[in-house]
């Protein structure tokens, strides 16, 4: 039992177990890049950010919230967006990234949580 617990605490084994569980149950493993953008108040400028994000080959979907100052980008299966690229693209649009996190939520879930506030 102790050995089993120790094994689960190992990040690699835990990730493998989680992936195996997701595959076994057929569950969709949704992870979304959630970018917090400083000073994003204007739909016009946010529109240019959305355009840039959608043009990335790794992007499956984009959601923008001015209320929460977030740009959420869903990655295509097996692909990963580069954080440095996201920062540069947002800087080119005239804004500054305050933070980038990867959250275990789909775009639809983020959209629903933002609208439910």
């Amino acid at each position: 039992m102790k050995n089993t617990l120790r094994a689960i605490r190992s990040p690699r084994i835990a990730a493998a177990a989680l992936t195996a569980f997701a595959l076994a149950t057929g569950a969709a493993w949704a992870e979304t890049v959630k970018v917090t953008v400083d000073g994003m108040v204007c739909a016009f400028c946010a529109g240019s950010i959305e355009k840039k994000m959608k043009a990335n080959k790794e992007t499956a979907d984009v959601f923008v919230s001015l209320e929460n100052k977030i740009v959420a980008v869903a990655e295509k299966p097996g692909m990963k967006l580069d954080d440095a690229l996201l920062r540069k693209q947002i800087a080119d649009a005239g804004y500054e990234v305050k933070g980038i996190e990867r959250v275990p939520q789909s775009i639809a879930e983020i959209r629903a949580s933002v609208r439910g506030k």
């Binding site: 739909a43 946010a46 959305e50 923008v64 919230s65 001015l66 209320e67």
Partner: peptide
Amino acid sequence: YAADYDDIA
């Protein structure tokens, strides 16, 4: 009103 991105402001 403070419109969000998907709204018409």
